[in-house]
Design a protein around this nucleic acid. Structure first.
Lengths: 191, 191, 191, 191
DNA sequence: GATGAATGAGTTTTCATTCAT
DNA sequence: TATGAATGAAAACTCATTCAT
């Protein structure tokens, strides 16, 4: 029931936005009453926080797994890009909520999520830094800024990519890793 | 007065989001009454549409100027990236509203804006296509997808770039054009 | 201009009702501004009063003319019924406003109109009374009550009669005077 | 509570009219909040529709009972007139709302009510038609038009009849059936 | 005579939240 | 666990009216 509420609310948040979705809208989709909602969630914002927490925690866990498993900096980076893009297929809806609705968390919770986002970002930044030192990536790059560029590419995909279309997430992921690697690799790196 | 309302509402929309900003909030910042707001705008949504229209129309106009002025495909692309990024400084607030709040336009208006956005995107796509044909850019690239990547990089900047920081928009713009050109240029292109 | 405002407001009041018609609605139909309206009328209610006054004053004047001209009680009554019914064609719209919107006059004005309505009604009542005394009409009738019946028949017509239809106001008037006379005439009255 | 809201709103609608009565006015009379009103009714118009539906449905049910029970056409007609008039005492307030405020229903609902009103009217028209064929009523009468006359007499009563006065509804009803029967009966009908 | 801008009080409606059962 | 009823605060929007120009 709780997970059903989460699932349906995500769909509604994607469709209409957090503010424009009422508790009534949510409970109507699964045929229960508002009282029931408040048994499972302290507030509407708590539900949104729940969604955000699960999403970023899962992402961080998988990012860590990649960093622990893959060998070269290039491979690590490719795997992280793929992680985000390929998720569109399975987690596209949550992702869209995650990217759009953080503003509606109360400051206290927003801070928690922002910190985890910063961790995720920082892990990429460190990766780039080390790749530069290892001469895999170009010396002129500013890791922090390039990290934002990479996240821009991947995260923006959630806004336009249509799972129904002819392009698969695997293909998209391949194109974007190729584009990014061309953008950052040292000319003398053994491709 | 009308332009004052627009200006203040943009600030509030950036800060709290469209839905969470009330007409009362807006008029309070300039000390007029709600009735006054409704004398100038048919509805809250009409104000949002006003903001969207002006922004994209201005952007399209300047994009066209670039396409008519610059010579090589590379120069055109660089100029367009710079156009978006450098605007953060002067138009950062409107931009943030433009990228985040389109969902709150009514379908009829959203369609108009979406079409203009598609024009802007399409102009880049065509530019890439021609650059590929001219052998300036790599043959393997899919122009449509790379266009989204470029827009992801530039548009995402509006979310994190802090005008107050030590990095200037000019510098950011330079880094991103460099990154993008590395990502797309033919190896044999005279850089 | 003033008469134009009256004319158009009557149409709107018929269509949407007094409360639901805004000053804006009225001035829009003739392409002037609200300020203009307030040059001609002290208030929205004043316009409604204007409409009511003209209508009932005109009706009373014509009723008096009938009472002064026609000979028998029967003829007087027939002429008054015809007066009301035949007016549907020329004054149907005003009539509908007159019958429906008196409630929106302020008490002070409503009292004035109610008094004139009472005069109009009373003239019929007196006519019936005299007709009974003259043995033209049946002795058992209560003039006051029958007056209301007659007014019910005629006034109700404004709600359903369609000028566009196949029945003319003359025909309707004939049918109703016939019906009423059958209802009230003494059996021994030389028809 | 819901029925209490209906009851009080009817009183207010009679007194001030539908448009001029606010939800606040209604809830204030029974000391609840506006939110409570909207728990029970989807909108102000929905409440008005509720009132209209119940009134006409009840009227139709009782009219049908009369048509099934009474023997002669004359008796049926008398019973129907009495039905409407006598109701003033118990249902005067609802009746006044019913006769005055249909314009404030949305077209969709107004159509439903208009159709039921037409049924009620049509039942009388058919009754008159059959009475004419049975030679109870005069051959020259146009049933449709006479039906409107009868409804004018009865419905108009809701506007002026004062339950507090010395005349009872029974007496009024008797006078009006007498008046109507004189107006329509064949001279040779055994009275 | 007419306009454009502004006001302020009021309107209907929405909605997150609470709570007795 | 769940429901149904109620709350209260706030939202968007309307509108008659005023008034300087």
């Amino acid at each position: 029931m709780k997970s059903e509420l989460i699932k349906q609310s995500i769909n509604l948040f994607v469709e209409k936005g957090f503010s424009a979705t009422s508790i009534q809208d949510i409970v109507d989709t699964i045929g229960v009453t508002k009282g029931s909602f408040y048994y499972h969630f302290k507030s509407k914002e708590a539900l949104l926080m729940d969604i955000h927490s699960h999403y970023i925690d899962d992402l961080l866990r998988r990012q860590r797994a990649i960093l622990d498993t893959e060998k070269s900096h290039k491979d690590k980076l490719m795997a992280i890009v793929e992680l985000i893009i390929v998720d569109i297929e399975k987690q596209g809806a949550v992702g869209r909520v995650y990217f759009r609705e953080i503003r509606h968390l109360k400051e206290e919770n927003a801070a928690i999520i922002r910190e985890k986002r910063a961790d995720f970002r920082n892990n990429i930044e460190v990766l780039l830094k080390e790749g530069i030192e290892a001469n895999e990536f170009r010396k002129e790059l500013q890791p922090k800024i390039i990290t934002f560029a990479i996240l821009g590419i991947t995260n923006w995909s959630y806004q336009w990519f249509n799972v129904e279309g002819s392009l698969t997430v695997k293909e998209l992921s391949a194109m974007y890793t190729d584009f990014i690697l061309h953008g950052i690799q040292s000319p003398d790196a053994s491709n």
